[in-house]
């Protein structure tokens, strides 16, 4: 659920970054939003630990608050900002090919977002590859991890940092809420299908790709929102995995 919170509360970061830089340059926005994402996880932790507010409520209070601030900033500077709630919430993947990156010489290098998302993907893969053991241990047995001297807090923030970066990067294409579908649905589906962590990671990626492709064709067929179709497809895949899970379980018992 934290990813849901982050995906909403990065809004003020995006708006502020835009106001300061005056451009819709992806990198500046990414930094602004990324910072806000980290601040969000920090506030949630703070209210939960120091304020003794139960975890679910501290998430709910924090992200609605930040999102409301974001919307207010948006409407206050509505005249100057080439952004609106709609595009932040929903994104529009179909427009991506229009936002092209030209080198100084004027050569067309293709859509910008591909580079940003590609960079983030590479970063995530590298971080996971090089810190696989630490991540594995802290995820499954944080008590053991602490006892052999791995900092739980550090890895918590590393993961949260990655989550907020990924969220923000995906923002432009699929919008705030549907990012959540992509962050939660494929792992949850894979989780039902396998017991092994490595298999789960690979399966998740495969599912992500499958969902995107099938979602795209559904959207074209219905002439509807691409992101919406993709997350609907993720639901369909989850339902199938769930049915299989229940079925095999019943046969065993």
């Amino acid at each position: 659920m934290v990813s849901d919170a982050i995906s909403h509360s990065v809004l003020p970061g995006i708006v502020i970054a835009f106001l300061i830089s005056g451009s819709r340059d992806s990198l500046v926005m990414l930094i602004g939003a990324g910072l806000l994402g980290l601040i969000t996880t920090f506030i949630i932790e703070f209210l939960h630990q120091k304020g003794r507010l139960q975890a679910d409520a501290s998430i709910g209070v924090t992200f609605t608050w930040l999102f409301a601030i974001g919307v207010i900033l948006l409407s206050y500077f509505a005249g100057d900002v080439d952004l609106d709630q709609d595009c932040v919430l929903n994104g529009e993947i179909a427009l991506l090919p229009l936002d092209l990156w030209y080198t100084e010489g004027g050569t067309n290098m293709g859509p910008k977002t591909i580079y940003v998302s590609g960079g983030i993907t590479l970063l995530v893969v590298l971080v996971i590859y090089f810190n696989y053991k630490e991540l594995l241990v802290t995820t499954f047995d944080s008590g053991y991890a602490a006892s052999i001297g791995i900092s739980i807090a550090l890895w918590h923030y590393v993961i949260m940092g990655l989550v907020s970066l990924t969220t923000v990067a995906s923002f432009e294409s699929v919008g705030a809420i549907l990012v959540v579908a992509f962050i939660i649905a494929p792992p949850a589906t894979a989780y039902l299908l396998t017991e092994k962590f490595k298999t789960m990671l690979l399966l998740t990626c495969a599912l992500g790709i499958l969902i995107s492709i099938s979602g795209y064709y559904v959207a074209v067929w219905l002439d509807g929102s691409i992101a919406g179709a993709m997350s609907s497809m993720s639901g369909v895949f989850f339902a199938m995995a769930f049915a299989r899970y229940r079925w095999t379980k019943k046969r065993i018992t």
Partner: peptide
Amino acid sequence: IGLNLSVFFGFGMLLLTY
């Protein structure tokens, strides 16, 4: 919760744009 929320909402968006 996250799964249901985003899938339902996504489906809603699909219908709305349709």
